[in-house]
Write a protein that binds this DNA or RNA. Structure first.
Lengths: 365, 365
DNA sequence: CTGTTAGCGCATTCAC
DNA sequence: GTGAATGCGCTAACAG
């Protein structure tokens, strides 16, 4: 037993010091059961005399409740997940729960080990934003439930699975944004941040297929873009959708390539912050001005977007609310403790923030 | 004993199923002590037959080690702390530790209760960015050490206390940024994000005093600004430093007021993102162009800064590295387990990222 | 109301 | 090598 700690007084020591039985000390210190006022005072006095602090770990193994929830996201430094994490901890801590947060860098194997760690640490529940897409490779998402630990999916659904989830209506948001561009007269709209496929894609069907094999949220945004095109009976130009690795640098390249096309897009819809900054960079280097020559709409509003020149029209996601609702749902599951009931899926809607980066399409050149 | 869990097999059950003693099962499952190959195989087989998972909580109460560290910051949704948190979890998880992260909203009472929670949950160490400034109100920072739990301060020092810490050289960074403005010919430089004092301030001494009663990092940045002014023998104009609540809205008001002055600043140094966006807003509404009419330097570089018009010159803080080093220091303390040795204070330096928002001061009007 | 006693799941000492 | 026995700090029946 390696116990290097300076000692940390136990309940027994407090009981001894107060001259009462362990149970009495345990009751007053644990705040349960009956105990007379004077006994309590003696115990309390002895307790803070010795500097007693409850060992929650020991309590947890005894009660089976850790008052800790697990949160697994791709990247806690991403403002989106940061906002979500804050929302979660707000409601969790108000109810006496703390969050163990793990980042997976979007790697499935890290996600799997994160879930294992959380289960082993006996968290009372898990909120997880999965990188898994296909319904295969999702065995780790079953594990918690098998162990009686509620799990709620965050921001990304897994099509085949019937699990609790709280997400954003990405598809509707993307459809709306794209249609706003169309309404302004644009017919050639670049979609930045496509599915990360390697080769070239020839048919729409392949595109949809590729999207479906990736992050749910990304796929939904692409679907919304396609919806809007269909609504307006506009053709899909595969040269106008970015494919490949999702980095700012690749977005830059993609946009640079697109603006050199004969049928260059006159507007861009960027589905993530890095996609947007890459696009902005490319547009500047190409000498194109916003919104006179090209219109633009981004995703993930930030205080920066409002101070740009021009202020950028954005799709704002309710990150805090997403976190809060996920936490509330999870806590209600924890309260219900195993009572079966089918999966709940909540969908929050994103807000369209209109500013000044969308203008009527320029005349055809 | 409320144990609603579907059962979770224990080491004893595995031992029984494998037909060996508990200890043998414990040894192979715990990976310690001697055990013959065939016994091990039997145990392992029984283990995954039953779906055995180690109860780390129970192990922790037994060993006194939880393999969990606590991280307490003001706001996990702030990209700065998000970056720090990522850095921490990178090195922590590589060593088998997970992070319990708590946000305090810069409230001292929440910070205190956060520390208590962490101590009670028996984390192996704590990394904390404190809102405490004066050396009073810091009793909670002693608690962990008394309990044998290492604590390392992050980003903010507490002047009176001799604790481990990893910080940024805010003063030097601010001094450098300000001096760059001076070098460009500016003599009236606005400092946005001052100490949050209520009334009016008449003397430099009061200003320094007010800063000292607040966040260490903020005070250092102000000190660096003052240093640069002194270096150049420039007078301090108290009307050029923002006082009051630190919000984007107040920054907007402060800048709006400053640009209306007879002796209006021709440059601004903004020490935080919200201060910067507030300033940018105010400048735009005042019809002032950057950098022709006013130069500007911000703190906390972001990918947005590079795509602004003009690209903004910024002070970039090594957030990830700050987190990594704090975690490394903490883990080394955990390894050392109580061996006394005096406090280590590491100081990382911020990087000055020169872009295009600083230009020579316009001619005096 | 109080104290005795028996767990919780795992680690660890010590005879066999 | 192996397994019985004891302990970690706390909760929780159960008598008194």
């Amino acid at each position: 037993m390696g116990k290097p700690r300076p000692s940390a007084p136990t309940i027994s020591e407090v009981a001894a010091a107060a001259g009462v039985g362990r149970a009495t000390a345990a009751r007053t210190l644990g705040g349960y059961g009956y105990v007379s006022a004077e006994m309590r005072d003696r115990v309390l006095a002895a307790a803070d005399e010795l500097g007693y602090r409850t060992n929650q770990l020991a309590r947890s193994v005894s009660t089976g409740v850790s008052h800790t929830i697990g949160v697994v996201v791709a990247d806690i430094s991403n403002p989106f997940f940061g906002g979500v994490a804050l929302g979660i901890s707000e409601v969790a801590s108000a109810r006496g729960f703390d969050a163990l947060v793990l980042s997976t860098a979007e790697h499935l194997d890290e996600e799997i080990s994160a879930v294992n760690v959380l289960v082993d640490k006996r968290v009372d529940g898990i909120i997880l934003s999965s990188a898994a897409c296909a319904a295969d490779s999702t065995a780790h998402l079953q594990l918690p439930n098998e162990q009686g630990i509620p799990l709620v999916l965050l921001d990304r659904l897994i099509p085949g699975l019937d699990l609790d989830a709280v997400v954003i209506d990405n598809r509707a948001a993307a459809r709306h944004a794209t249609s706003e561009l169309i309404r302004a007269g644009h017919t050639r709209i670049g979609f930045i941040w496509g599915p990360p496929v390697a080769g070239r894609i020839e048919y729409r069907r392949e595109l949809v297929e590729a999207a479906r094999r990736n992050l749910w949220s990304d796929g939904e945004r692409l679907a919304g873009y396609l919806d809007a095109l269909d609504d307006a009976a506009l053709p899909l130009d595969l040269d106008h959708v970015m494919l490949g690795e999702k980095t700012e640098a690749r977005a830059y390249e993609a946009v640079t390539r697109m603006v050199a096309l004969d049928a260059a897009p006159t507007a861009f819809f960027c589905t993530e912050t890095d996609a947007l900054t890459g696009t902005l960079h490319a547009l500047r280097d190409a000498g194109l001005s916003i919104p006179q020559q090209v219109s633009i709409i981004g995703f993930d509003d930030s205080s920066w977007a409002a101070v740009m020149n021009p202020p950028l029209t954005m799709v704002r996601q309710p990150m805090l609310e997403l976190g809060r609702q996920a936490a509330e749902l999870l806590l209600s599951r924890i309260d219900a403790a195993g009572e079966a009931s089918h999966a709940v899926q909540r969908e929050l809607s994103a807000e369209f923030v209109e500013r000044a980066s969308v203008a009527p399409a320029p005349d055809e050149r």
